[in-house]
Lab assay of single mutants.
Amino acid sequence: TGEEYIAVGDFTAQQVGDLTFKKGEILLAIEKKPDGWWIAKDAKGNEGLVPRTYLEPYS
């Protein structure tokens, strides 16, 4: 299990392996990579890379 984050903006996948999401979606951070791209999972179970700058902790 990971930590929940809320998307603060829309993001469209730029390449294969990225995860597209919309502002307000809750994402589960699976792995926090030091380069600023995290592996996350959305509510539908889709998994991919997301930019850290689009996420804020969800409580």
Score class of each variant (00 low, 15 high):
8 V>Q: 07
12 T>R: 09
52 R>K: 13
56 E>W: 08
5 Y>V: 03
27 L>M: 07
10 D>Y: 04
33 K>H: 12
36 G>Q: 05
46 N>R: 10
2 G>D: 11
45 G>L: 03
28 L>E: 08
43 A>Y: 09
12 T>W: 11
49 L>S: 10
3 E>T: 10
37 W>T: 06
18 D>P: 02
26 I>K: 07
35 D>N: 11
26 I>A: 03
53 T>A: 15
7 A>H: 01
37 W>K: 08
27 L>A: 00
48 G>W: 03
7 A>F: 02
12 T>G: 06
39 I>P: 02
29 A>S: 06
40 A>W: 03
32 K>N: 04
36 G>C: 06
57 P>L: 10
1 T>R: 13
23 K>F: 06
22 K>W: 07
41 K>P: 01
50 V>D: 02
59 S>N: 14
59 S>E: 14
54 Y>Q: 09
7 A>S: 07
2 G>Y: 15
5 Y>I: 02
36 G>T: 03
42 D>K: 01
39 I>E: 04
28 L>N: 07
8 V>H: 05
55 L>T: 01
19 L>M: 06
27 L>Y: 02
51 P>K: 09
34 P>S: 13
21 F>C: 05
10 D>E: 06
29 A>V: 15
57 P>W: 07
18 D>C: 14
12 T>M: 11
28 L>V: 14
30 I>Y: 05
22 K>I: 08
41 K>Q: 11
1 T>N: 12
38 W>I: 07
11 F>I: 04
24 G>I: 00
20 T>H: 06
1 T>Y: 13
35 D>E: 07
42 D>Q: 02
30 I>L: 12
45 G>I: 00
48 G>C: 04
43 A>G: 10
26 I>V: 09
23 K>R: 11
46 N>Q: 10
46 N>Y: 07
47 E>Y: 14
34 P>T: 12
46 N>P: 01
57 P>V: 08
56 E>Q: 10
19 L>C: 03
52 R>Y: 14
24 G>K: 02
11 F>A: 01
41 K>C: 09
18 D>K: 10
34 P>E: 14
46 N>A: 08
10 D>M: 03
10 D>A: 07
51 P>F: 10
46 N>G: 07
58 Y>E: 05
31 E>I: 12
4 E>P: 13
16 V>K: 13
19 L>R: 00
40 A>N: 01
31 E>N: 11
43 A>C: 12
27 L>V: 05
56 E>T: 08
28 L>Q: 10
1 T>G: 13
47 E>I: 15
33 K>A: 09
47 E>H: 10
55 L>Q: 00
45 G>D: 05
37 W>E: 04
45 G>E: 04
25 E>N: 07
7 A>N: 01
48 G>P: 00
51 P>A: 06
27 L>G: 01
16 V>H: 12
43 A>Q: 12
33 K>Y: 11
19 L>D: 02
55 L>M: 05
13 A>D: 03
33 K>N: 13
41 K>R: 15
13 A>P: 06
17 G>R: 05
22 K>N: 08
52 R>H: 14
14 Q>A: 11
15 Q>G: 12
16 V>M: 11
25 E>W: 07
3 E>W: 11
19 L>Q: 01
50 V>L: 03
8 V>M: 12
26 I>C: 07
12 T>I: 12
32 K>T: 06
28 L>K: 09
18 D>Q: 15
53 T>N: 14
49 L>C: 12
18 D>V: 13
2 G>I: 13
58 Y>C: 10
44 K>P: 03
21 F>S: 01
49 L>H: 09
30 I>T: 06
26 I>G: 02
31 E>S: 10
17 G>W: 05
15 Q>T: 11
15 Q>E: 11
46 N>D: 08
6 I>A: 04
54 Y>I: 09
52 R>I: 12
19 L>N: 01
6 I>C: 07
37 W>G: 04
54 Y>P: 02
9 G>R: 15
40 A>G: 04
13 A>V: 03
45 G>A: 03
8 V>F: 04
23 K>M: 08
7 A>K: 00
14 Q>C: 12
35 D>W: 04
26 I>S: 03
54 Y>A: 10
40 A>P: 00
34 P>I: 10
7 A>G: 04
9 G>Q: 15
20 T>F: 03
44 K>C: 14
34 P>L: 11
1 T>H: 14
18 D>F: 15
19 L>V: 02
22 K>E: 06
30 I>H: 03
35 D>S: 08
50 V>R: 00
22 K>Y: 10
21 F>I: 11
39 I>W: 14
13 A>E: 04
4 E>D: 06
27 L>P: 00
4 E>Y: 15
51 P>L: 10
7 A>V: 04
51 P>S: 07
57 P>S: 07
11 F>T: 02
10 D>P: 05
22 K>P: 03
15 Q>P: 02
24 G>F: 05
4 E>S: 13
2 G>R: 13
53 T>Y: 12
14 Q>F: 09
42 D>T: 05
17 G>N: 06
17 G>C: 08
58 Y>L: 13
49 L>N: 11
51 P>W: 08
23 K>V: 08
16 V>Q: 12
59 S>D: 14
